[in-house]
Amino acid sequence: MRRFVSIMLMLVLVLSIAACGGTGSRGNTGSRFHNTYGADWSPRELRAVAKKMILSMSRARWFKRANFARIRWVLAKEMKNDTDEHINTRVIMEKIRTGLINQYEVRFIDDEALKDILRRQKLQQSDLFDSSTVVKVGRLVGARLMIRGRVSNMRRRTGRETANFIIVRVSIVDMQTGDIRWENDYEKRKLNIRSRYR
C-alpha cells in the first residue's frame, strides 16, 4: 500500500511539474536572432545584400568611368517583390543608395522627380521593368542609370522544417539605351526547424 501511494505521489508530482512548465518555443538553430526570424527575410539579409551589391558594382569597369563623368542615377521606387513575404523592398534600394553616395560619391536624382514623371505619364512602377518605358522615362527624368531589382523566393514546409531559398537580383539599366549595364544576384538558403515542444 505504501509503495502504491509513493508511486502515485511521484506520478502526480511529475504531472503537476509538467503542467506548470512554460510554454515558450525554442528553435534549434541556436541564437535568439534565428528564433525571431526563422526562415524569413531578416535584417541580416538586408545588410548582406547591400554590402555585396555595392562591392560588386564598384569593381565593375564602367563604374569608375560613370562616376568620373558625373552621370546621374535614379532609384526605382521599390524592388519587385515575388516572394511570399511582405518585405519592405524600398529599404534594400535605399541601403544600396546610401552606400554608393557615402563611399563613392555617386550622384542620385531625388525619387520625387521619378514619381512625378510616372504620375504625369500615367505609368506605374511595374512599367519600369519594360525597357522601352525605361528609355522614355529616363529622357524625362534626366538620369542616365537606374537601379532596379527583384526579390523572389522558394519556400518549402515539411512538418516542422521550413526551407527558404531567397534570391535578390539587382540590375543597373542605362536609361538612354535600355541596356542592362550590370547585374548581380544574392542567394541565400535558410533553414528553420521548429522545436517539437512549445
Binding site: 504531472l15 509538467a18 506548470c20 510554454t23 514546409r157 516542422r160 521548429r194 512549445r198
Partner: peptide, 18 residues
Amino acid sequence: FLNIEGTISIREEVSSIF
C-alpha cells in the same frame, strides 16, 4: 497557427488529460 502546427505543449496536454 503555422508556428504551432505539429508542436506539443506539455502543459496543455496534461491539462487536457485532467
